[in-house]
Protein backbone atom coordinates (compact mmCIF):
# COMPACT_ATOMS: atom_id res chain seq x y z
CA UNK A 1 0.00 0.00 0.00
CA UNK A 2 2.83 2.37 0.83
CA UNK A 3 6.46 2.34 1.81
CA UNK A 4 8.04 3.86 4.85
CA UNK A 5 11.43 5.48 4.91
CA UNK A 6 13.21 3.46 7.55
CA UNK A 7 16.33 5.56 7.23
CA UNK A 8 14.50 8.78 7.91
CA UNK A 9 14.94 10.38 11.30
CA UNK A 10 11.24 10.83 11.59
CA UNK A 11 9.64 8.35 14.01
CA UNK A 12 7.93 5.53 12.16
CA UNK A 13 4.68 6.17 13.90
CA UNK A 14 4.61 9.77 12.67
CA UNK A 15 5.39 8.64 9.14
CA UNK A 16 2.52 6.16 9.31
CA UNK A 17 0.07 8.79 10.50
CA UNK A 18 1.09 11.17 7.72
CA UNK A 19 1.00 8.57 4.95
CA UNK A 20 -2.44 7.34 5.97
CA UNK A 21 -3.74 10.90 6.26
CA UNK A 22 -2.62 11.63 2.70
CA UNK A 23 -4.33 8.46 1.47
CA UNK A 24 -7.54 9.43 3.25
CA UNK A 25 -7.55 13.08 2.17
CA UNK A 26 -6.81 12.17 -1.44
CA UNK A 27 -9.65 9.62 -1.29
CA UNK A 28 -7.46 6.69 -2.19
CA UNK A 29 -8.99 5.28 0.96
CA UNK A 30 -12.72 5.99 0.75
CA UNK A 31 -15.12 6.77 3.56
CA UNK A 32 -16.11 3.64 5.49
CA UNK A 33 -13.41 1.61 3.77
CA UNK A 34 -11.69 -0.83 6.11
CA UNK A 35 -8.04 -0.24 6.85
CA UNK A 36 -5.68 -3.23 6.82
CA UNK A 37 -5.56 -4.90 10.20
CA UNK A 38 -2.63 -4.21 12.50
CA UNK A 39 -1.52 -7.78 12.01
CA UNK A 40 -1.49 -7.62 8.21
CA UNK A 41 0.14 -4.23 8.01
CA UNK A 42 2.84 -5.05 10.52
CA UNK A 43 3.79 -8.18 8.61
CA UNK A 44 3.67 -6.41 5.27
CA UNK A 45 5.90 -3.56 6.38
CA UNK A 46 7.91 -5.50 8.97
CA UNK A 47 6.97 -2.92 11.56
CA UNK A 48 6.23 -3.46 15.22
CA UNK A 49 2.46 -4.05 15.60
CA UNK A 50 2.32 -1.76 18.63
CA UNK A 51 3.65 1.09 16.51
CA UNK A 52 0.86 0.56 14.02
CA UNK A 53 -1.72 0.32 16.77
CA UNK A 54 -0.44 3.60 18.12
CA UNK A 55 -0.70 5.28 14.70
CA UNK A 56 -4.28 4.05 14.32
CA UNK A 57 -5.17 5.38 17.76
CA UNK A 58 -3.70 8.76 16.84
CA UNK A 59 -5.67 8.87 13.57
CA UNK A 60 -8.80 8.00 15.49
CA UNK A 61 -8.10 10.79 17.95
CA UNK A 62 -7.74 13.23 15.07
CA UNK A 63 -10.99 12.02 13.56
CA UNK A 64 -9.62 10.44 10.38
CA UNK A 65 -10.70 6.92 11.23
CA UNK A 66 -13.12 5.18 13.55
CA UNK A 67 -12.90 1.71 15.05
CA UNK A 68 -15.56 -0.89 15.56
CA UNK A 69 -14.73 -3.28 18.37
CA UNK A 70 -13.97 -6.71 16.98
CA UNK A 71 -14.22 -5.55 13.36
CA UNK A 72 -11.33 -3.22 12.76
CA UNK A 73 -10.59 0.33 11.72
CA UNK A 74 -12.51 2.27 9.08
CA UNK A 75 -12.08 5.58 7.29
CA UNK A 76 -14.24 8.31 8.81
CA UNK A 77 -16.12 10.92 6.84
CA UNK A 78 -13.54 13.66 6.50
CA UNK A 79 -14.26 17.12 5.23
CA UNK A 80 -12.06 17.08 2.16
CA UNK A 81 -11.69 20.84 2.03
CA UNK A 82 -9.96 20.48 5.36
CA UNK A 83 -6.60 20.87 3.72
CA UNK A 84 -5.92 23.89 5.87
CA UNK A 85 -2.98 22.31 7.58
CA UNK A 86 -1.26 21.37 4.34
CA UNK A 87 -1.99 24.76 2.79
CA UNK A 88 -0.44 26.55 5.73
CA UNK A 89 2.66 24.43 5.32
CA UNK A 90 2.86 25.08 1.58
CA UNK A 91 2.49 28.78 2.18
CA UNK A 92 5.37 28.67 4.59
CA UNK A 93 7.52 26.81 2.08
CA UNK A 94 6.60 29.24 -0.68
CA UNK A 95 7.70 32.17 1.43
CA UNK A 96 10.99 30.42 2.06
CA UNK A 97 11.61 29.64 -1.62
CA UNK A 98 10.52 33.08 -2.82
CA UNK A 99 12.74 34.81 -0.29
CA UNK A 100 15.70 32.89 -1.58
CA UNK A 101 14.79 33.61 -5.21
CA UNK A 102 14.44 37.33 -4.55
CA UNK A 103 17.62 37.36 -2.54
CA UNK A 104 19.49 35.78 -5.44
CA UNK A 105 18.15 38.47 -7.79
CA UNK A 106 15.00 37.03 -9.35
CA UNK A 107 12.59 39.79 -10.32
CA UNK A 108 9.04 40.11 -9.12
CA UNK A 109 7.83 40.08 -12.74
CA UNK A 110 9.63 36.78 -13.40
CA UNK A 111 7.96 35.20 -10.38
CA UNK A 112 4.54 36.41 -11.47
CA UNK A 113 5.21 35.05 -14.94
CA UNK A 114 6.06 31.63 -13.48
CA UNK A 115 2.86 31.70 -11.47
CA UNK A 116 0.73 32.37 -14.54
CA UNK A 117 2.54 29.63 -16.46
CA UNK A 118 1.88 27.11 -13.70
CA UNK A 119 -1.71 28.28 -13.50
CA UNK A 120 -2.16 27.66 -17.22
CA UNK A 121 -0.50 24.26 -16.90
CA UNK A 122 -2.63 23.09 -13.96
CA UNK A 123 -6.00 24.53 -14.98
CA UNK A 124 -5.49 23.91 -18.69
CA UNK A 125 -5.60 27.57 -19.64
CA UNK A 126 -9.21 28.34 -18.83
CA UNK A 127 -9.85 32.01 -18.36
Amino acid sequence: MFELDLRSRKPIYEQLVEKLKVLIISEVLKTDEQLPSVRVLSTQLTINPNTIQKAYRELERQGYIYSLPGKGNFVARVTRDGNTERLAKLREELVKILSEAIYLGMKKEDIIKIISEVDVMVRGGEK
Binding site: R39, T43, I47, N48, P49
Partner: peptide
Protein backbone atom coordinates in the same frame (compact mmCIF):
# COMPACT_ATOMS: atom_id res chain seq x y z
CA UNK B 1 13.89 -13.23 10.96
CA UNK B 2 12.60 -9.80 11.94
CA UNK B 3 9.47 -10.44 9.94
CA UNK B 4 8.94 -13.81 11.62
CA UNK B 5 9.35 -12.24 15.06
CA UNK B 6 6.88 -9.50 14.18
CA UNK B 7 4.34 -12.01 12.91
CA UNK B 8 4.43 -13.91 16.17
CA UNK B 9 4.14 -10.69 18.14
CA UNK B 10 1.18 -9.52 16.07
CA UNK B 11 -0.65 -12.83 15.98
Amino acid sequence: VRNLIIQDTAE
